[in-house]
Design a protein around this nucleic acid. Structure first.
Lengths: 209, 209
DNA sequence: ATAGCGACCGACCGGTCGGTCGTTAAACCG
DNA sequence: CGGTTTAACGACCGACCGGTCGGTCGCTAT
Protein backbone atom coordinates (compact mmCIF):
# COMPACT_ATOMS: atom_id res chain seq x y z
CA UNK A 1 0.00 0.00 0.00
CA UNK A 2 2.28 2.78 1.18
CA UNK A 3 5.81 3.01 -0.14
CA UNK A 4 8.58 1.87 2.13
CA UNK A 5 10.36 4.62 3.94
CA UNK A 6 13.83 5.49 2.84
CA UNK A 7 16.67 5.53 5.29
CA UNK A 8 16.30 9.27 5.65
CA UNK A 9 12.65 8.88 6.55
CA UNK A 10 13.35 6.37 9.27
CA UNK A 11 14.24 9.25 11.49
CA UNK A 12 10.94 10.87 10.75
CA UNK A 13 9.20 7.64 11.64
CA UNK A 14 11.03 7.56 14.93
CA UNK A 15 10.00 11.12 15.63
CA UNK A 16 6.41 10.30 14.83
CA UNK A 17 6.54 7.43 17.30
CA UNK A 18 8.04 9.57 20.04
CA UNK A 19 5.59 12.40 19.46
CA UNK A 20 2.65 10.06 19.60
CA UNK A 21 4.11 8.43 22.69
CA UNK A 22 4.23 11.79 24.43
CA UNK A 23 0.60 12.46 23.61
CA UNK A 24 -0.60 9.06 24.73
CA UNK A 25 1.58 8.99 27.84
CA UNK A 26 0.32 12.35 29.01
CA UNK A 27 -3.20 10.94 29.13
CA UNK A 28 -2.73 7.25 29.87
CA UNK A 29 0.58 7.46 31.69
CA UNK A 30 3.96 6.14 30.69
CA UNK A 31 2.86 2.64 31.64
CA UNK A 32 -0.50 2.88 29.96
CA UNK A 33 1.45 3.45 26.78
CA UNK A 34 1.39 0.01 25.15
CA UNK A 35 3.37 -1.03 22.13
CA UNK A 36 0.44 -2.68 20.44
CA UNK A 37 -1.86 0.28 20.70
CA UNK A 38 0.86 2.69 19.72
CA UNK A 39 1.67 0.62 16.66
CA UNK A 40 -2.00 0.50 15.78
CA UNK A 41 -2.36 4.26 16.10
CA UNK A 42 0.58 4.78 13.77
CA UNK A 43 -0.48 2.13 11.28
CA UNK A 44 2.55 -0.04 11.75
CA UNK A 45 3.48 -3.29 13.44
CA UNK A 46 4.66 -3.71 17.01
CA UNK A 47 7.95 -5.17 15.92
CA UNK A 48 8.63 -2.46 13.39
CA UNK A 49 7.98 0.10 16.07
CA UNK A 50 10.05 -1.61 18.72
CA UNK A 51 12.93 -1.88 16.30
CA UNK A 52 13.51 1.83 16.72
CA UNK A 53 14.01 1.59 20.48
CA UNK A 54 14.73 -1.94 21.56
CA UNK A 55 12.54 -1.92 24.63
CA UNK A 56 9.54 -0.20 26.05
CA UNK A 57 11.66 1.43 28.72
CA UNK A 58 13.86 3.01 26.07
CA UNK A 59 10.71 4.35 24.44
CA UNK A 60 9.54 5.79 27.75
CA UNK A 61 12.88 7.54 28.19
CA UNK A 62 12.70 8.92 24.67
CA UNK A 63 9.20 10.21 25.35
CA UNK A 64 10.32 11.94 28.54
CA UNK A 65 13.24 13.55 26.76
CA UNK A 66 10.95 14.81 24.01
CA UNK A 67 8.60 16.05 26.72
CA UNK A 68 11.45 18.08 28.17
CA UNK A 69 12.08 19.62 24.77
CA UNK A 70 8.43 20.62 24.56
CA UNK A 71 8.41 21.99 28.09
CA UNK A 72 11.47 24.04 27.31
CA UNK A 73 9.91 25.36 24.14
CA UNK A 74 6.61 26.23 25.84
CA UNK A 75 7.82 27.62 29.17
CA UNK A 76 11.40 28.78 28.98
CA UNK A 77 11.73 29.96 25.41
CA UNK A 78 8.84 32.47 25.54
CA UNK A 79 10.51 34.02 28.58
CA UNK A 80 13.98 34.14 27.07
CA UNK A 81 13.41 37.62 25.68
CA UNK A 82 12.50 39.12 29.04
CA UNK A 83 15.10 40.95 31.09
CA UNK A 84 17.06 38.70 33.46
CA UNK A 85 15.96 38.50 37.07
CA UNK A 86 12.43 39.21 38.21
CA UNK A 87 10.92 40.08 34.80
CA UNK A 88 12.13 36.84 33.32
CA UNK A 89 10.92 34.90 36.36
CA UNK A 90 7.49 36.39 36.02
CA UNK A 91 7.50 35.64 32.32
CA UNK A 92 8.45 32.04 33.02
CA UNK A 93 5.63 31.69 35.51
CA UNK A 94 3.15 33.23 33.10
CA UNK A 95 4.26 30.85 30.37
CA UNK A 96 4.12 27.99 32.83
CA UNK A 97 0.55 28.78 33.77
CA UNK A 98 -0.35 29.16 30.13
CA UNK A 99 1.30 25.85 29.34
CA UNK A 100 -0.92 24.15 31.91
CA UNK A 101 -4.02 26.09 30.91
CA UNK A 102 -3.66 25.34 27.20
CA UNK A 103 -3.16 21.68 27.98
CA UNK A 104 0.08 21.33 26.07
CA UNK A 105 0.08 17.84 27.50
CA UNK A 106 -3.57 16.84 27.27
CA UNK A 107 -3.41 14.71 30.40
CA UNK A 108 -1.70 17.33 32.51
CA UNK A 109 1.96 17.96 33.14
CA UNK A 110 3.72 14.85 31.91
CA UNK A 111 6.52 15.05 34.43
CA UNK A 112 4.35 15.33 37.50
CA UNK A 113 2.17 12.45 36.39
CA UNK A 114 5.19 10.35 35.57
CA UNK A 115 6.77 11.05 38.92
CA UNK A 116 3.72 9.75 40.73
CA UNK A 117 3.65 6.79 38.42
CA UNK A 118 7.26 5.78 38.95
CA UNK A 119 8.09 6.81 42.50
CA UNK A 120 8.59 3.77 44.66
CA UNK A 121 9.44 1.82 41.53
CA UNK A 122 12.96 3.04 40.92
CA UNK A 123 14.73 2.39 37.65
CA UNK A 124 16.13 4.54 34.86
CA UNK A 125 12.85 6.34 34.22
CA UNK A 126 12.67 7.67 37.77
CA UNK A 127 16.36 8.58 37.60
CA UNK A 128 15.75 10.63 34.47
CA UNK A 129 12.79 12.37 36.08
CA UNK A 130 14.92 13.24 39.08
CA UNK A 131 17.59 14.72 36.84
CA UNK A 132 15.04 16.71 34.87
CA UNK A 133 13.44 18.18 37.97
CA UNK A 134 16.78 19.01 39.53
CA UNK A 135 18.06 20.68 36.37
CA UNK A 136 14.96 22.71 36.08
CA UNK A 137 14.85 23.73 39.74
CA UNK A 138 18.46 24.80 39.33
CA UNK A 139 17.52 27.13 36.50
CA UNK A 140 14.76 28.63 38.61
CA UNK A 141 16.90 29.17 41.70
CA UNK A 142 19.65 30.68 39.59
CA UNK A 143 17.23 33.20 38.15
CA UNK A 144 15.88 33.88 41.63
CA UNK A 145 19.36 34.52 42.98
CA UNK A 146 19.94 36.89 40.14
CA UNK A 147 16.76 38.75 41.00
CA UNK A 148 17.86 39.02 44.64
CA UNK A 149 21.29 40.25 43.60
CA UNK A 150 19.66 42.93 41.48
CA UNK A 151 17.59 44.05 44.44
CA UNK A 152 14.35 43.07 42.75
CA UNK A 153 13.55 40.72 45.61
CA UNK A 154 14.26 41.31 49.30
CA UNK A 155 17.74 40.17 50.34
CA UNK A 156 16.37 37.75 52.95
CA UNK A 157 14.64 35.78 50.17
CA UNK A 158 15.30 32.05 50.28
CA UNK A 159 15.40 30.99 46.62
CA UNK A 160 14.83 27.32 47.34
CA UNK A 161 11.87 28.11 49.55
CA UNK A 162 10.43 30.19 46.74
CA UNK A 163 10.95 27.43 44.21
CA UNK A 164 9.20 25.03 46.57
CA UNK A 165 6.20 27.30 46.79
CA UNK A 166 6.07 28.24 43.13
CA UNK A 167 6.18 24.60 42.30
CA UNK A 168 3.27 24.01 44.68
CA UNK A 169 1.22 26.65 42.90
CA UNK A 170 1.78 24.95 39.57
CA UNK A 171 1.00 21.53 40.95
CA UNK A 172 -2.19 22.82 42.52
CA UNK A 173 -3.16 24.41 39.22
CA UNK A 174 -2.37 21.25 37.32
CA UNK A 175 -4.35 19.15 39.77
CA UNK A 176 -7.38 21.42 39.77
CA UNK A 177 -7.47 21.67 35.99
CA UNK A 178 -7.26 17.92 35.64
CA UNK A 179 -9.76 17.07 38.35
CA UNK A 180 -12.45 19.67 37.88
CA UNK A 181 -11.47 21.75 34.85
CA UNK A 182 -12.26 24.83 36.91
CA UNK A 183 -11.05 27.87 34.92
CA UNK A 184 -10.98 29.97 38.10
CA UNK A 185 -7.90 28.00 39.07
CA UNK A 186 -5.89 29.95 36.50
CA UNK A 187 -6.71 33.24 38.18
CA UNK A 188 -5.83 31.75 41.55
CA UNK A 189 -2.48 30.61 40.27
CA UNK A 190 -1.78 34.05 38.84
CA UNK A 191 -2.66 35.69 42.12
CA UNK A 192 -0.46 33.27 44.02
CA UNK A 193 2.47 34.02 41.72
CA UNK A 194 1.87 37.75 42.11
CA UNK A 195 2.16 37.33 45.84
CA UNK A 196 5.34 35.26 45.61
CA UNK A 197 6.99 37.39 42.93
CA UNK A 198 5.65 40.92 43.36
CA UNK A 199 6.17 43.01 40.25
CA UNK A 200 8.33 46.07 40.74
CA UNK A 201 6.04 48.76 42.13
CA UNK A 202 7.67 51.83 40.60
CA UNK A 203 7.96 50.73 36.98
CA UNK A 204 10.92 49.33 35.13
CA UNK A 205 13.43 52.06 36.00
CA UNK A 206 15.18 50.94 39.16
CA UNK A 207 18.36 49.29 38.05
CA UNK A 208 20.77 50.43 40.73
CA UNK A 209 22.49 47.35 42.06
CA UNK B 1 -4.46 -26.51 55.86
CA UNK B 2 -5.84 -23.47 57.62
CA UNK B 3 -9.23 -23.62 59.29
CA UNK B 4 -12.10 -21.97 57.51
CA UNK B 5 -13.10 -18.59 58.81
CA UNK B 6 -16.41 -18.37 60.53
CA UNK B 7 -19.08 -16.21 58.99
CA UNK B 8 -18.41 -13.56 61.59
CA UNK B 9 -14.80 -13.45 60.55
CA UNK B 10 -15.62 -12.87 56.90
CA UNK B 11 -15.90 -9.22 57.71
CA UNK B 12 -12.45 -9.24 59.21
CA UNK B 13 -11.15 -10.93 56.08
CA UNK B 14 -12.69 -8.21 54.00
CA UNK B 15 -11.07 -5.57 56.15
CA UNK B 16 -7.73 -7.27 55.81
CA UNK B 17 -8.09 -7.22 52.05
CA UNK B 18 -9.02 -3.55 51.98
CA UNK B 19 -6.22 -2.58 54.34
CA UNK B 20 -3.67 -4.45 52.30
CA UNK B 21 -5.11 -2.90 49.13
CA UNK B 22 -4.56 0.55 50.55
CA UNK B 23 -0.93 -0.24 51.36
CA UNK B 24 -0.21 -1.74 47.98
CA UNK B 25 -2.11 0.92 46.06
CA UNK B 26 -0.24 3.74 47.74
CA UNK B 27 3.01 2.35 46.36
CA UNK B 28 2.01 0.69 43.10
CA UNK B 29 -1.05 2.75 42.33
CA UNK B 30 -4.67 1.71 42.17
CA UNK B 31 -4.06 0.05 38.83
CA UNK B 32 -0.84 -1.63 39.88
CA UNK B 33 -2.93 -3.36 42.48
CA UNK B 34 -3.52 -6.79 40.97
CA UNK B 35 -5.87 -9.43 42.28
CA UNK B 36 -3.38 -12.24 41.94
CA UNK B 37 -0.65 -10.55 43.87
CA UNK B 38 -3.02 -9.29 46.51
CA UNK B 39 -4.41 -12.79 47.00
CA UNK B 40 -0.89 -14.16 47.26
CA UNK B 41 0.08 -11.60 49.87
CA UNK B 42 -2.91 -12.55 51.96
CA UNK B 43 -2.51 -16.27 51.47
CA UNK B 44 -5.78 -16.79 49.69
CA UNK B 45 -7.03 -17.41 46.19
CA UNK B 46 -7.95 -14.80 43.63
CA UNK B 47 -11.51 -16.01 43.44
CA UNK B 48 -11.95 -16.13 47.19
CA UNK B 49 -10.74 -12.57 47.37
CA UNK B 50 -12.82 -11.33 44.48
CA UNK B 51 -15.89 -12.88 46.08
CA UNK B 52 -15.86 -10.08 48.61
CA UNK B 53 -16.09 -7.32 46.04
CA UNK B 54 -17.22 -8.65 42.71
CA UNK B 55 -14.85 -6.62 40.59
CA UNK B 56 -11.52 -4.91 40.78
CA UNK B 57 -13.16 -1.54 40.42
CA UNK B 58 -15.28 -2.21 43.51
CA UNK B 59 -12.10 -3.10 45.35
CA UNK B 60 -10.47 0.13 44.21
CA UNK B 61 -13.44 2.12 45.46
CA UNK B 62 -13.32 0.30 48.79
CA UNK B 63 -9.61 1.06 49.08
CA UNK B 64 -10.20 4.74 48.38
CA UNK B 65 -12.97 4.90 50.97
CA UNK B 66 -10.74 3.24 53.55
CA UNK B 67 -8.01 5.69 52.58
CA UNK B 68 -10.38 8.53 53.36
CA UNK B 69 -11.03 7.04 56.78
CA UNK B 70 -7.29 6.91 57.42
CA UNK B 71 -6.79 10.46 56.16
CA UNK B 72 -9.54 11.63 58.45
CA UNK B 73 -8.01 9.85 61.39
CA UNK B 74 -4.52 11.16 60.69
CA UNK B 75 -5.24 14.73 59.67
CA UNK B 76 -8.60 15.91 60.94
CA UNK B 77 -9.00 13.99 64.18
CA UNK B 78 -5.75 15.22 65.78
CA UNK B 79 -6.92 18.77 65.11
CA UNK B 80 -10.44 18.25 66.42
CA UNK B 81 -9.43 19.31 69.92
CA UNK B 82 -8.04 22.66 68.81
CA UNK B 83 -10.18 25.76 69.06
CA UNK B 84 -12.28 26.43 65.95
CA UNK B 85 -10.96 28.89 63.40
CA UNK B 86 -7.32 29.65 62.92
CA UNK B 87 -5.92 27.39 65.69
CA UNK B 88 -7.73 24.39 64.26
CA UNK B 89 -6.63 25.30 60.76
CA UNK B 90 -3.04 25.45 61.84
CA UNK B 91 -3.42 22.15 63.69
CA UNK B 92 -4.87 20.56 60.57
CA UNK B 93 -1.97 21.78 58.48
CA UNK B 94 0.54 20.54 61.03
CA UNK B 95 -1.12 17.13 61.10
CA UNK B 96 -1.26 17.17 57.31
CA UNK B 97 2.46 17.82 57.03
CA UNK B 98 3.13 15.16 59.62
CA UNK B 99 0.93 12.73 57.75
CA UNK B 100 3.03 13.25 54.65
CA UNK B 101 6.32 13.22 56.53
CA UNK B 102 5.59 10.01 58.40
CA UNK B 103 4.57 8.33 55.17
CA UNK B 104 1.17 7.21 56.38
CA UNK B 105 0.73 6.08 52.81
CA UNK B 106 4.15 4.69 51.96
CA UNK B 107 3.92 5.71 48.33
CA UNK B 108 2.80 9.26 49.06
CA UNK B 109 -0.67 10.69 49.37
CA UNK B 110 -2.98 8.08 47.94
CA UNK B 111 -5.52 10.57 46.65
CA UNK B 112 -3.09 12.71 44.74
CA UNK B 113 -1.48 9.70 43.12
CA UNK B 114 -4.84 8.22 42.27
CA UNK B 115 -6.03 11.46 40.73
CA UNK B 116 -3.06 11.53 38.39
CA UNK B 117 -3.65 7.89 37.62
CA UNK B 118 -7.31 8.23 36.73
CA UNK B 119 -7.70 11.71 35.28
CA UNK B 120 -8.47 11.51 31.61
CA UNK B 121 -9.88 8.05 32.22
CA UNK B 122 -13.19 8.90 33.79
CA UNK B 123 -15.31 6.30 35.54
CA UNK B 124 -16.58 5.76 39.07
CA UNK B 125 -13.12 5.90 40.63
CA UNK B 126 -12.47 9.39 39.32
CA UNK B 127 -15.96 10.43 40.37
CA UNK B 128 -15.29 9.26 43.92
CA UNK B 129 -11.97 11.11 43.99
CA UNK B 130 -13.72 14.28 42.84
CA UNK B 131 -16.29 13.94 45.61
CA UNK B 132 -13.62 13.32 48.22
CA UNK B 133 -11.58 16.33 47.19
CA UNK B 134 -14.61 18.55 47.06
CA UNK B 135 -15.86 17.43 50.46
CA UNK B 136 -12.51 18.01 51.96
CA UNK B 137 -11.98 21.40 50.33
CA UNK B 138 -15.40 22.31 51.69
CA UNK B 139 -14.33 21.51 55.23
CA UNK B 140 -11.22 23.63 54.80
CA UNK B 141 -13.02 26.64 53.35
CA UNK B 142 -15.64 26.41 56.08
CA UNK B 143 -12.97 26.54 58.74
CA UNK B 144 -11.28 29.40 56.89
CA UNK B 145 -14.50 31.38 56.74
CA UNK B 146 -14.92 30.81 60.43
CA UNK B 147 -11.43 32.14 61.06
CA UNK B 148 -12.21 35.24 58.99
CA UNK B 149 -15.47 35.76 60.87
CA UNK B 150 -13.59 35.60 64.14
CA UNK B 151 -11.18 38.23 62.92
CA UNK B 152 -8.25 35.81 63.03
CA UNK B 153 -7.62 36.37 59.35
CA UNK B 154 -7.97 39.67 57.47
CA UNK B 155 -11.50 40.27 56.17
CA UNK B 156 -10.35 40.50 52.56
CA UNK B 157 -9.14 36.89 52.74
CA UNK B 158 -10.37 34.72 49.88
CA UNK B 159 -10.91 31.28 51.45
CA UNK B 160 -10.86 29.40 48.16
CA UNK B 161 -7.66 31.12 47.12
CA UNK B 162 -6.11 30.08 50.40
CA UNK B 163 -7.25 26.49 49.99
CA UNK B 164 -5.73 26.50 46.52
CA UNK B 165 -2.40 27.65 47.88
CA UNK B 166 -2.39 25.42 50.95
CA UNK B 167 -3.13 22.53 48.72
CA UNK B 168 -0.19 23.48 46.54
CA UNK B 169 2.11 23.49 49.54
CA UNK B 170 1.05 19.98 50.47
CA UNK B 171 1.39 18.73 46.91
CA UNK B 172 4.83 20.22 46.63
CA UNK B 173 5.82 18.60 49.91
CA UNK B 174 4.39 15.28 48.81
CA UNK B 175 6.18 15.49 45.50
CA UNK B 176 9.54 16.45 46.98
CA UNK B 177 9.41 13.74 49.61
CA UNK B 178 8.58 11.13 47.01
CA UNK B 179 11.10 12.23 44.43
CA UNK B 180 14.12 13.11 46.50
CA UNK B 181 13.27 12.30 50.13
CA UNK B 182 14.68 15.71 51.06
CA UNK B 183 13.81 16.32 54.73
CA UNK B 184 14.31 20.07 54.27
CA UNK B 185 11.03 20.01 52.37
CA UNK B 186 9.18 19.62 55.66
CA UNK B 187 10.63 22.86 57.02
CA UNK B 188 9.77 24.60 53.77
CA UNK B 189 6.20 23.41 53.97
CA UNK B 190 5.94 24.65 57.57
CA UNK B 191 7.30 28.03 56.62
CA UNK B 192 4.89 28.27 53.72
CA UNK B 193 1.96 27.48 55.98
CA UNK B 194 3.15 30.04 58.51
CA UNK B 195 3.06 32.64 55.79
CA UNK B 196 -0.39 31.66 54.60
CA UNK B 197 -1.90 31.24 58.07
CA UNK B 198 0.02 33.61 60.37
CA UNK B 199 -0.40 32.66 64.01
CA UNK B 200 -1.95 35.34 66.19
CA UNK B 201 0.90 37.65 67.10
CA UNK B 202 -0.16 38.71 70.56
CA UNK B 203 -1.02 35.37 72.09
CA UNK B 204 -4.45 33.73 72.47
CA UNK B 205 -6.26 36.70 74.07
CA UNK B 206 -7.71 38.75 71.24
CA UNK B 207 -11.26 37.54 70.83
CA UNK B 208 -13.02 40.78 70.06
CA UNK B 209 -14.87 40.30 66.81
C1' DA C 1 23.20 -5.95 -12.43
C1' DT C 2 23.56 -7.21 -7.91
C1' DA C 3 24.85 -7.63 -3.05
C1' DG C 4 23.97 -5.88 1.26
C1' DC C 5 21.57 -3.11 4.61
C1' DG C 6 17.92 -1.71 7.36
C1' DA C 7 12.97 -0.56 8.05
C1' DC C 8 9.22 -3.10 8.55
C1' DC C 9 5.96 -7.05 8.79
C1' DG C 10 3.17 -10.96 10.76
C1' DA C 11 3.16 -14.88 13.38
C1' DC C 12 4.23 -16.32 17.62
C1' DC C 13 6.19 -16.82 22.51
C1' DG C 14 5.70 -17.08 27.70
C1' DG C 15 3.45 -14.71 30.99
C1' DT C 16 -0.13 -11.95 33.46
C1' DC C 17 -4.27 -9.72 33.67
C1' DG C 18 -9.44 -9.53 35.44
C1' DG C 19 -12.93 -12.53 35.78
C1' DT C 20 -15.99 -17.16 35.75
C1' DC C 21 -17.46 -21.63 37.28
C1' DG C 22 -18.30 -25.78 39.81
C1' DT C 23 -17.03 -27.73 44.10
C1' DT C 24 -15.89 -28.27 49.03
C1' DA C 25 -16.57 -27.77 53.69
C1' DA C 26 -17.39 -25.13 57.64
C1' DA C 27 -20.73 -22.26 60.04
C1' DC C 28 -25.44 -21.29 60.95
C1' DC C 29 -30.42 -22.38 61.73
C1' DG C 30 -34.57 -25.27 62.35
C1' DC D 1 -29.70 -33.89 63.68
C1' DG D 2 -30.55 -32.34 58.49
C1' DG D 3 -30.73 -28.43 55.25
C1' DT D 4 -29.20 -23.99 53.85
C1' DT D 5 -25.93 -20.61 53.40
C1' DT D 6 -21.49 -18.95 52.12
C1' DA D 7 -16.32 -18.19 52.35
C1' DA D 8 -12.94 -19.99 49.99
C1' DC D 9 -10.75 -23.02 46.60
C1' DG D 10 -8.46 -24.48 42.15
C1' DA D 11 -8.94 -24.92 37.42
C1' DC D 12 -9.77 -22.39 33.67
C1' DC D 13 -10.91 -18.59 30.09
C1' DG D 14 -10.12 -14.90 26.64
C1' DA D 15 -7.65 -10.80 26.19
C1' DC D 16 -3.63 -8.49 26.22
C1' DC D 17 1.03 -7.61 27.59
C1' DG D 18 6.31 -6.92 26.13
C1' DG D 19 9.27 -9.03 23.33
C1' DT D 20 11.39 -12.40 19.61
C1' DC D 21 12.13 -14.32 15.12
C1' DG D 22 12.34 -15.36 10.28
C1' DG D 23 11.52 -13.25 6.36
C1' DT D 24 10.24 -9.42 2.70
C1' DC D 25 11.07 -5.42 0.22
C1' DG D 26 13.04 -0.99 -1.24
C1' DC D 27 17.00 1.73 -1.23
C1' DT D 28 21.86 2.44 -2.21
C1' DA D 29 26.63 1.52 -3.18
C1' DT D 30 29.36 -1.12 -5.86
Amino acid sequence: MSPRNSLAEARRTRERIVQRSVDVASVEGLSGLTLGRLAGDLGMSKSGLLGHFGSKEALQLAALRQGAVIFDREVWRPAAGAAPGLPRLRAVCAAWISYLERGVFPGGCLFVSSTFEFDGRGGPVLALLRRQFRAWAGRLTGELRSAVARGELPPETDPEQLVFELYGVMMSLNHTLQLSADPAAVTRAERAVDRLLPQPAGGPSEKLA
